Measured scan of single mutants.
Amino acid sequence: KQVQVGDEKYTFDTPEEARKFAEKVAKEKNLKVTEKNGNFHVE
């Protein structure tokens, strides 16, 4: 599963790991997490 933050992409083995990372980054940057096709976008 992938997490996209701006132009950066991070790959994780499980959706749970990806979601945790996305939520942590979103909180730090005051952004929101959206899920698209099983991948997460922080925007």
Rank of each mutant, 00 (worst) to 15 (best):
R19C: 08
K29Y: 14
E28C: 14
N37V: 02
N39L: 11
A22F: 04
A26D: 02
Q4W: 15
D7M: 12
F21A: 00
V33S: 03
V42W: 03
Q4F: 15
K36D: 09
H41E: 08
K1E: 03
E17G: 05
R19L: 08
K20D: 10
K27P: 01
D13T: 10
L31W: 14
V25T: 07
T14H: 05
K32C: 13
E8R: 14
E35S: 07
V42Y: 02
E28F: 06
E8I: 14
G6R: 05
F40D: 03
H41L: 14
T11R: 08
T34F: 14
E35N: 08
F21T: 00
H41A: 08
E28Q: 08
V25I: 13
F40V: 04
A18W: 02
P15S: 13
T14S: 12
K32F: 11
K1D: 03
A22M: 04
N37L: 06
T34Y: 14
N37A: 06
E23D: 09
A22R: 04
K29W: 13
Q4A: 06
K20E: 12
V5E: 02
F12C: 05
E43P: 05
K1C: 15
D13C: 13
A18L: 01
K1T: 15
E17I: 05
F40N: 02
N39V: 15
Y10S: 01
E23F: 13
K32Q: 11
Y10K: 02
E35T: 10
N30F: 07
A18G: 01
F21W: 08
F12L: 02
N39H: 11
Q2I: 15
D7I: 09
Q4K: 08
K36Y: 12
E17K: 05
G6S: 04
A26V: 02
E35W: 11
K9E: 07
K1A: 15
D7L: 12
T11W: 15
E43V: 13
E43D: 11
N39Y: 12
K36C: 14
K27E: 09
G6T: 02
D7T: 13
E23Q: 09
V33L: 09
Q2A: 10
K32V: 13
H41S: 09
A18F: 01
N39S: 12
R19E: 03
E8Q: 14
V25F: 08
K27L: 12
N39R: 10
K32A: 09
Q2E: 11
T11K: 07
Y10V: 03
K24L: 10
E16C: 11
F40I: 08
E8Y: 13
V5H: 05
Q2M: 14
F12T: 01
K36A: 08
G38R: 02
K29R: 13
F21E: 00
E43H: 12
A26H: 01
K9C: 15
P15L: 13
T14R: 05
K20C: 11
D13I: 07
T14L: 05
E28W: 07
K29H: 14
K32T: 12
H41W: 14
Q2F: 15
D13Y: 06
T14I: 04
R19M: 06
V3P: 01
K9V: 15
N30V: 04
E43M: 12
N37K: 05
K29C: 15
Q4L: 15
K20H: 10
V33A: 05
R19Q: 06
K20Y: 09
K32G: 07
A26M: 04
K29G: 11
Q4H: 15
E17L: 08
L31I: 05
E16I: 05
V33C: 10
T14V: 04
G38V: 01
K32H: 11
F40H: 03
E35L: 14
V42M: 06
Q2D: 08
F40Q: 02
P15E: 14
F12H: 00
N39P: 02
A22N: 00
F21V: 00
E16F: 07
T11I: 13
F40K: 02
R19S: 04
N37Y: 07
R19F: 07
K27A: 13
L31E: 05
K20N: 10
V5L: 07
F12G: 00
K27M: 12
K29S: 09
T34E: 06
F12S: 00
T34V: 14
K24T: 09
A18D: 00
T34N: 08
Q4E: 07
Q4R: 10
T11L: 12
Q4N: 10
L31G: 13
T14G: 05
E16V: 05
P15A: 14
D13M: 08
V5N: 03
V33N: 03
E43A: 11
D7A: 12
V3A: 02
N37S: 05
